[in-house]
């Protein structure tokens, strides 16, 4: 049985992982685009990405495109796995109709 993942369950981080999970293998999203997709502010998104990066769920890559700095975020394999397990956990709750710790 899957369990509650505190890191992913937070509303904004759940959306971040949902957006990143759609990407194909080795694909990444730009910070500004991810910000729009999850309707976050710069600071808010940065803080949540820090948390996800520390948990090993996302990889953050900073690079320059010409003279412009660009931050790209991609899900790690363990991040995808943790997200899938968390979604399975949420579905189990709905199927069982109960409250789970």
């Amino acid at each position: 049985m899957s369990g509650l993942n505190d890191v992913i369950h937070q509303a904004m981080r759940l959306k971040i992982m949902a957006a990143l999970n759609v990407l194909g293998p080795d694909s990444a999203l730009e910070f500004t685009r991810l910000k729009t997709l999850v309707a976050a502010t710069d600071g808010n998104l940065g803080a949540h990405l820090d948390t996800l990066e520390k948990a090993g769920y996302v990889a953050i890559e900073k690079r320059f495109v010409g003279k412009k700095p660009q931050t790209r975020i991609k899900p790690t394999p363990s991040g995808r796995r943790a997200f899938a397990e968390h979604v399975a956990y949420l579905r189990e709750i709905l199927d069982g109709g109960g409250v789970r710790a």
Binding site: Y89, G97, V99
Partner: peptide, 8 residues
Amino acid sequence: RRAETVDA
């Protein structure tokens, strides 16, 4: 808010 339980 640290999620400890999740209801349906």
